[in-house]
Design a protein around this nucleic acid. Structure first.
Lengths: 158, 158
DNA sequence: GTCGGTGCAAAACGTTTGCACCTCG
DNA sequence: CGAGGTGCAAACGTTTTGCACCGAC
């Protein structure tokens, strides 16, 4: 084994991730015979390359800064498409508008939201998963997805 | 059986509950030297007497049916007031508008939402409380309130 | 060449606000 | 009587939609 191959780190989520997701998108579109347009690529790339969430307006502003020029309607339509394809998720943090975020394999819809500074901290905890699975089972409910919003003050806002 | 004695069921939450809540409201208003108006009473009564949740529009429609006639602005303003006083809570089930519901002593912001029929089933489970308390503690987060939305299909919608 | 996507502007939607009048306390 | 509430309509901000044109396949 003359492996010239570099020691690939055990975890390398952000790097190849965006490209991979872009391939998934391309495949999903082809499967539905929908065109892979420049605009769709730009919006998807923005979401895929950053784990951040974006409002429709922020998507527009960010892309405008990058020299891309595209209409609000396209942004809303594309974001809805990404959500429908399961590649993005929509969140409402009571700001009067929605936010969109890449959807990685495992759903991560659980957030701590600071009521002081407005920052959003995603979290993931197996105990929560377990407890909610039990709730769904008890209710004869087949869970599809979930959203947890824990409002409070973060440690920086005392 | 000359029933003048009605067999009162063991649990009778809804009955005295509304009246009690109305007293709480009256007290909160007096404390803040805010008037207890006919409109506020009507809206509060609707929420207090039914455990259901209502959109602003549904409040308007329901009260119109009861012969009350009051403006949208008053409804929104009163609902916001009830939320601020801690007597009601606001929920967003991704319908494009908000829903309001009486807030009973213990917060109950946790819902199973059927994506088929749209029905909403509140739930309450100590394990969930415990797991989320742990999450908040780990993050140095002082929790204020929370919302859990578990989307799925209810047992009637298979 | 065709079907769908895009951009623009206008409309739609729930919600908020300004203001004259009214009502509770 | 006065502070505040109410109703109406207009304003607001986000999102959706109609339509002519353009671009991907």
């Amino acid at each position: 084994m003359t492996d010239s191959s570099p020691a690939v780190p055990a975890t390398r989520p952000p790097l190849g991730c965006a490209a991979l997701l872009m391939e998934v998108l391309r495949g999903e579109l082809r499967e539905r015979e929908l065109p892979f347009t420049h605009q769709r690529e730009a919006i998807a790339r923005l979401l895929f390359e950053s784990q951040r969430n974006y409002s429709a307006d922020e998507v527009a502003a960010e892309l405008r800064e990058r020299g891309e020029r595209l209409g609000k309607a396209t942004i809303y339509r594309t974001l809805a498409l990404l959500v429908e394809l399961g590649l993005a998720t929509e969140h409402d943090f009571d700001e009067g508008f929605k936010r969109y975020q890449v959807q990685l394999g495992a759903a991560r819809h659980d957030h701590l939201i600071c009521t002081e500074c407005g920052r959003v901290f995603p979290f993931d905890h197996p105990d929560v998963d377990r407890a909610l699975a039990a709730v769904a089972e008890d209710a004869g409910f087949a869970p599809i997805t979930r959203h947890i919003k824990l409002f409070g003050t973060c440690n920086e806002c005392t």
